[in-house]
Design a protein around this nucleic acid. Structure first.
Lengths: 302, 302
DNA sequence: TCCGTCCTCTGACTAGAGTCAGAGGATGGA
DNA sequence: TCCATCCTCTGACTCTAGTCAGAGGACGGA
């Protein structure tokens, strides 16, 4: 059994208790005279409007159903629907003044329910509750991240690479020129030369990592990156671990990587993960440190 | 504002994230081919059966609705309905073999969902998550406790008093005789002579505390008790605080109480709450310690 | 024994949530 | 320019969840 039974029992207890207390909060708009579906849509539109397509994917609703919900909101004068300027197939929706007001009421009601949750507790208990909630939230987010192989040309991969380059450009002394250093072509990050992993959180790309297989039985980690929005979830470590696992599965005995001295957190993570510093194994002008780690010949079970 | 806005925001963030991840768990029986309502009933019946009346109150369902749900389960051969032996108005419901099997499937599915939540995390993260969940669960339970004035003759009060006596009988050296010591009659624990508070958790009584007002401007705390099922929620402290508040509202300047030496946790709580030990102010044969605390003349806002 | 109360069941509803198929306009690549 | 695809809307449904009023048997205290 890969997951401890006692932990599972605790999770279920937690969910039972929390569902009762939090359910009320999450559906506090049920108290509005509007049906839940419509209230959720009203909420999700947000203060700056939204286009119907993204609304549909965020709420995961049937297009016909959403269409009807929006029309009922429109008939009540809470929203305005308009064709998108850029793509006339798409409709955009925006809150009217009345819609904004009603959304504020929902907001306020949720605040009240949340405050009711805290009120019976003394100040120390409140602090403990908020701290524990933050911890649970972080870890549940971490567990919601999915890591999977992705083609480096895929939109998610592109978004991650753009984030990676952008961050290096910002942090490196004297900027970063992807063309200069040691460019890595897509071909090198897909089978059979290598692979590319993307981490997604609710289908948003939030991190990546690539592997290049070399003929000498080593695999090289490249493009390891975690978006600012997903920091603190242990995602870097997880991606690194997954890459090592894939390297081992592919028969590599050692994993190597190089890094720039300004990336101190990354360097700390490599050391913590068991990497030891080695002499330069390439002449990457952006690199100041080179690391390697032996990986077990047996691939770890998935 | 009595509750910190930042804390409210955190609670709402938490609930949003948790609702998404936990909702799936709580409604993992939705995946069964049975409608949610029926699945919940099937679950709630439990392995030892149940009578319909208590089922109805636990699930808070309309009697007609529940009746129909049960009949549909009966038609599918999952449960057997029978008249109660003791009261022929009441019906009891019991799982058949097939019902037990289907319930086990639901159970297993919930386990799986919970395990899926933990699986992406490394062992340290799992431990942290379980610990934080336990903390959140405890504190949410604590905040779900309601404290209210109750007549000492009410069934909830009686249940608490029975628990109180039972515990003293068990813990005191040489047992406890409620008639011996200093008996407190109902009359003394209701207005105008005093008052009785009951703490309930989901309408189950889980603690109590009484106050007797004396002519010398003091109020005496009696019958302070917390059920074993609600220990660790800070309920004793909360009840004591409520009693002090009521005493102050009633014009008392000082709160007194006596206690037995075996009740070490209670003694610790009194000290932590600002009580100081004083010479005996009565001749309760069960008492070894006497405490008092000045309460502010201004009643604290509710 | 009588009567108010309790527990359950039945019939008759309503409303909300969501599904499905298809129409029709808009877009964009071949 | 044509055609597959995309986005949205409409009509016609289904299924659940839940409510309400009232019937009828059972109980329990006066």
């Amino acid at each position: 059994m890969d997951v401890d039974g006692e932990a599972v029992r605790r999770v279920r207890r937690f969910s039972r208790v929390v569902a009762q207390r939090i359910g009320a909060l999450h559906e506090s708009y049920l108290a509005s005279e509007r049906p839940l579906g419509a209230a959720r849509v009203l909420w999700e539109i947000g203060p700056d409007g939204s286009d119907v397509r993204s609304l549909r994917s965020r709420l995961d609703l049937d297009s016909g159903y959403l269409s009807r919900l929006l029309r009922s909101l429109e008939e009540d004068g809470l929203v305005v629907l308009r064709r998108s300027e850029t793509d006339k197939r798409v409709r955009t929706v925006r809150l009217t003044e009345r819609g904004t007001a009603e959304r504020a009421v929902l907001d306020h009601r949720s605040d009240d329910v949340a405050a009711d949750l805290l009120r019976p507790l003394d100040p120390r208990q409140r602090d403990r509750l908020v701290a524990a909630m933050t911890e649970v939230e972080q870890l549940l987010l971490a567990s919601a991240v999915r890591v999977s192989v992705c083609d480096p040309a895929h939109a998610d991969a592109r978004a991650c690479l753009a984030g990676y380059y952008g961050e290096l450009a910002e942090r490196f002394d004297g900027g970063f020129d992807p063309a200069a250093g040691l460019p890595v072509h897509d071909e090198e990050m897909r089978s059979p030369a290598g692979l590319f992993l993307v981490a997604t959180l609710r289908s948003e790309p939030v991190g990546c990592g690539a592997l290049r297989f070399h003929d000498d039985g080593s695999a090289e980690v490249k493009r390891l990156w975690v978006s600012a929005s997903a920091r603190g979830l242990g995602l870097g470590k997880r991606l690194l671990g997954e890459l090592e696992g894939r390297a081992a599965e592919h028969g590599a005995r050692v994993v190597r990587l190089d890094t720039n001295r300004v990336l101190v957190e990354a360097i700390g993570m490599y050391r913590a993960a068991g990497y030891r510093e080695v002499p330069p194994f390439n002449d990457n002008p952006h690199a100041h440190h080179w690391f390697e780690k032996a990986v077990p010949a047996e691939p770890p079970g998935s």
